[in-house]
Design a protein around this nucleic acid. Structure first.
Lengths: 116, 116
DNA sequence: AAAATACGCAACCATGTAGTTGCACATCTG
DNA sequence: CAGATGTGCAACTACATGGTTGCGTATTTT
């Protein structure tokens, strides 16, 4: 089952890297914070919270959407974005498995030292 | 206490973004997987697992080190890198607080709908 | 001492990213 | 219908990133 954890750590590295990368920007972190603690918002509304232009926010929302962290739907002339928790739950599981793997590694190295 | 969570979500966004960004690359994810489940390794050893050049791996290790995810120490002519779990634990806490915030938001929106 | 190993540094290239401006188009609203 | 609002698309700049090659230097090893 050490192998099971190892598998969890190395599985789907491309999608995982993309999700991490999507969170690797302060503007996008702010968008996530806004969308996960409030109602869905249009591009103009979300751009209003920032000092950046609407077009810049559109690009950031595109990155988040490609990573699956937000979904968008059209409502009249507006495009509403809402949070989707699934990808972040995946990252959380990944980080938990990394911690577990590290604990096992520490224990193994320690017993190795004690033996000789 | 909703405010406490909100604070946790918006605190230190710069450092957090840098840590997320450091994990936003498949090569670096592989390095993390290697270092968290094995002994410390030198640059040449770590480069041996990859198809990239030693210099490319050096750059990736620099990104991980600037994010605090790995530490390095000199041993003779070698430079040994080892895993540091602290930053990833911070990300894990962050993701947990985002999930909690999202659950509260869902509950609030739901009751809002029920009321009217 | 000479060869092999491990590393650092710099230059360079291609590509991606973050941001802007400008303009066209769709959709509400008076 | 005319104007205001919300969006999409394209071009462009500036800079960061991922990767390479080349070379110099420190440290083992034989």
């Amino acid at each position: 089952m050490s192998r099971k954890i190892r598998k969890r750590i190395t599985a789907k590295p491309k999608a995982r890297a993309r999700t991490f990368a999507a969170l690797g920007d302060k503007t996008r972190l702010a968008l996530v914070a806004r969308l996960c603690s409030g109602e869905p918002g249009s591009i103009s509304q979300l751009a209003g919270d920032s000092k950046l232009t609407r077009q810049a926010i559109t690009k950031h929302l595109g990155v988040l959407e490609r990573a699956g962290i937000v979904r968008s739907s059209h409502a009249g002339r507006e495009r509403l974005f809402e949070f989707d928790p699934a990808p972040l739950e995946g990252l959380q599981e990944y980080l938990v498995s990394v911690s577990r793997q590290w604990d096992q590694t520490l224990a193994r190295l320690k017993s190795h030292v004690e033996k000789g």
